[in-house]
């Protein structure tokens, strides 16, 4: 500080900074302000000792207060679980078929089930539960294994075609590529098309109807309405799991397609299985 400059006009010392001849006056800060700054520095040092602060190679210093956000979160979750304990107990005891009539419990179950669904089910069934090719849409009124609450709980618990659960839903259509000739497949497809669409080849469809009665009706029914007891899809409605055009139908008949689902009873708690079933039931198709 050899060159102390003083501004002539005001008599105040300058900092020596000059911009286009405009010089900065050194009007110092008040003492209390400075002390506040020093206090915050001291506070800061104390803080880094008391609380987790300094990054180390793995993790950080723990701090002498033993404060941990993870622990806080765990406590918060436990506190919430504690608050919901009555609802969970009621859900576990509830007669699932009558759940929708119990508005408060149903609201809890649907909200909880929504969270389970988005975490566990949305990968295949979609975040909006609208499904995809090969993965059923859960919003509509078409069910492979039944849309009543108890049936949904069963499907979710035991899964579909799941070898790890002996009670899983199980059915398997033969691949008709080995049984039918190409012409027979084409005729059967034409019969299926005739069930929904006005545009079809009548002679071919008649031929297909005979083939259908002989080969398919045992599972899909005489009127092709399907059978939920064995998961045979309804072929007479507007909904196709894999697609309803002729090429897709021929492929399905020749190769026999089916889907699988994990047995969620093995992976989720009972209350979560019940909750997610309540959620699916409340999506619009519940029976």
């Amino acid at each position: 500080m050899a060159d102390r400059k003083v501004d002539e006009e005001t008599g105040v010392e300058t900092t020596g900074h000059s911009w286009d001849g405009i010089e900065e006056l050194n009007n110092p800060l008040p003492r209390w302000w400075l002390w506040t700054l020093y206090l915050t520095i001291i506070w800061g040092i104390g803080y880094t000792i008391a609380y987790p602060a300094w990054p180390m190679v793995s993790g950080a210093t723990a701090g002498v207060m033993g404060w941990s956000t993870r622990e806080n979160v765990a406590n918060d979750i436990a506190a919430h679980d504690g608050q919901n304990a009555n609802l969970v107990a009621a859900l576990l005891e509830a007669d699932m078929a009558a759940l929708p009539e119990n508005a408060d419990l149903n609201r809890y179950a649907v909200a909880r089930g929504g969270a389970v669904f988005r975490a566990q089910c949305s990968q295949c069934h979609g975040s909006g539960a609208a499904g995809a090719v090969g993965y059923p849409n859960l919003l509509d009124d078409d069910w492979l294994w039944g849309g009543e609450m108890e049936q949904i709980v069963y499907s979710v618990t035991h899964g579909i075609r799941n070898e790890t659960d002996p009670d899983a839903h199980w059915s398997q259509m033969p691949a008709f590529g080995d049984i039918f000739t190409r012409e027979e497949t084409t005729a059967t497809v034409e019969y299926l098309v005739s069930l929904a669409s006005p545009e079809f080849d009548a002679t071919l469809a008649e031929e297909g109807a005979v083939l259908f009665l002989d080969n398919c009706a045992a599972c899909h029914g005489d009127a092709a309405m399907g059978d939920r007891a064995i998961g045979a899809p309804n072929l007479a409605d507007a909904i196709w799991l894999y697609g309803g055009d002729r090429d897709t139908l021929a492929y399905s008949i020749e190769n026999a397609r089916f889907g699988v689902m994990p047995a969620w009873g093995q992976r989720l708690s009972d209350e979560d299985v019940r909750a997610v079933s309540a959620y699916v039931h409340a999506l619009g198709g519940g029976e």
Binding site: S127, G128, L139, D141, A238, I239
Partner: peptide, 18 residues
């Protein structure tokens, strides 16, 4: 309006919006 999906096809061919 629920836009995921934009509509739902029902088994009788009717269209439902949620």
């Amino acid at each position: 309006p629920v836009r995921n999906p934009t509509f739902v096809l029902q088994s009788d061919g009717s269209i439902r919006n949620i």
